[in-house]
Design a binder for these strands. Sequence first.
DNA 1: CTGTTAGCGCGTTCAG
DNA 2: CTGAACGCGCTAACAG
Lengths: 362, 362
Amino acid sequence: MASEHSVPPTISEVAAAAGVGRSTAARTLGGYGYVSPELRERVLAAAERLGYRANALARSMSTGVTQTLGVIVADIANPFFGGVVRGISDASRARGVETLVLSTHEDLAEEIAATDVLIDKRVDGIVVASAALDVGSAAHIQQARDRGIPVVLVDRAVTGLLLDTVVIDNRAAARDAVAKLVAAGHRRIGFVWGPPLEDRPQRRRELTDVAARNLWTDAQRLQGYLDALDDAGILFDADLVMVGRKTEENAEVEVTRMLGLEHPPTALFCTENDAVTGSLRALRAAGLRVADDISLIGFDDSSWAAVMEPPLTMIEQPTLALGTRAAEVLFAAIDGESPAPQVHTLRTRFVERASVAAPRER
Amino acid sequence: MASEHSVPPTISEVAAAAGVGRSTAARTLGGYGYVSPELRERVLAAAERLGYRANALARSMSTGVTQTLGVIVADIANPFFGGVVRGISDASRARGVETLVLSTHEDLAEEIAATDVLIDKRVDGIVVASAALDVGSAAHIQQARDRGIPVVLVDRAVTGLLLDTVVIDNRAAARDAVAKLVAAGHRRIGFVWGPPLEDRPQRRRELTDVAARNLWTDAQRLQGYLDALDDAGILFDADLVMVGRKTEENAEVEVTRMLGLEHPPTALFCTENDAVTGSLRALRAAGLRVADDISLIGFDDSSWAAVMEPPLTMIEQPTLALGTRAAEVLFAAIDGESPAPQVHTLRTRFVERASVAAPRER
DNA sequence: CTGTTAGCGCGTTCAG
DNA sequence: CTGAACGCGCTAACAG
């Protein structure tokens, strides 16, 4: 006879087996209230014998706490978010809290649905890398807060949303990187990756307007690029920014286009990993060597960047730290120890290798 | 006056607001049983007005279904697992099911604890990339099954555990790759990465014994390597396998050691991404060029591999597909449509590029 | 210090 | 076709 799935024993059964009342069992097993050593021992023994494990669902029902955090990111397959989630996960585990991870494909509608799910499941808190551009499109986040669920933003701030936010200083990092290029003597510097412009902007103003209507990190990095140009008194040239979809393929296409300009860029600033590989493809196709023929700096360091020929100079983001910090801030809020919402800015690391050199003589 | 966090309305409140009984409201909102169109309308209106959302916890309490899957992997920050989780997540979302992701740092004790948590939280099913070597160390998985929770293994089989398993054919993939190296004329082929041997094995038998006591995928890939050598009638040389910790640093150290041998390898087979980058570091330090001086094939394709100089020949794993397939199999089991447990083998893709050439004349 | 009692919010018989 | 009543398993007041 096939043994049926053993129905997990309840606390009442343990109590019965130990010959005590339900709540005495509950108290010892739940670790609260007073229980005489003697009874305590009997309960523990019975629980052990029956293989008792508390039903977390029932417990959450009455305590209102699920020991679960909700995490919303665009794409868990992206190593950047993988690192962030790992950070959150590690920090939470230390507190006995698990994480429900939802991947939204960078789609706001999915993000909103994800938020609803997390609210319904009564998570204790939410950390989200939101696709929302400003408060106007962040009603779902407000809603979670209204329901009493603490929320912290990670990786991306949401303009106008006064919430704990854990980010890096994208603008400053970009500015510094481009400044290094300028310092090496470059004046024609290509900007590869977002924000996704549909047409080549004619004026600088137009560009920043579009940027503001797009992903926060992209806009910030673009601003940093413009800042650096300003600092150096270099005129912005619309031909040197990537236009169109944010894919490795399009990065290749756009860099190829730039290389065909009358005055091609002598350096490239890539704000994402796929921008780097896309650019590299274009350079190879054009028979150009990094450093010797054209300089390059990229965002998101990777062990691959170090083994390229030449090794690539990159901006490293503290992915794990972003996650652990976000979790810490969230737990502080959950514990009610949170002061006023704050923006927590983590440091990036400029990993200088050998992909930057002086511009080639013409 | 600061508005308090609005306590979410319960179904009873909706019923009251609509002037009907609780269960009438429950029936319309839950979408079961009969309800007159008229009352139905009133309930819906009231629910809308109050912003009613069902408490998933309470629902799970009475239905016994959580609409949640548990996923256990070694490291969510690893792009391979990131892809797998993304696949599971996407497939689940389509069914309205979310995923609780637990990262175990490749530690069996953590994996066991993770399993307990998932059981306690009453997930509907579990997919796990287990660190267990054989049935003996897989009691926790059996336990979940005993509790009535379907489990499917992904990425790694567990010897002796008769369960639905979704994997690639690691052994065949490795064998084929090494065979390509042999076909190119190589006879001294280095094996870089796991299983982590403490000392250099003296005999082949000793090696496979150790392998069997380690990570399944590592053992399989090593077997494939040995298979290919056998096929070609090449004698196994213990000096050509990596020994020690599985880290990029140690891969570099070990490859450097191999390069210093009297008869150094003319080709390298790297069974993981960090093995590739570690090897590359060693080659660069030795002033050796890939293909020209030494051939190389790696596991886990990445967009970086395509932009290396020369582009690297790699074995690509279908990470997303592993995840979606695992989810499908799991759902079949949850729906009770599962036939006998089965091993589902997904195809890898051999991405031929330019890192393999004939061995250099001495 | 212990046992009894009352919820938590929802699903589901079962009379009416 | 509707509403009252009970149960899921656990926590938490509250008497005793």
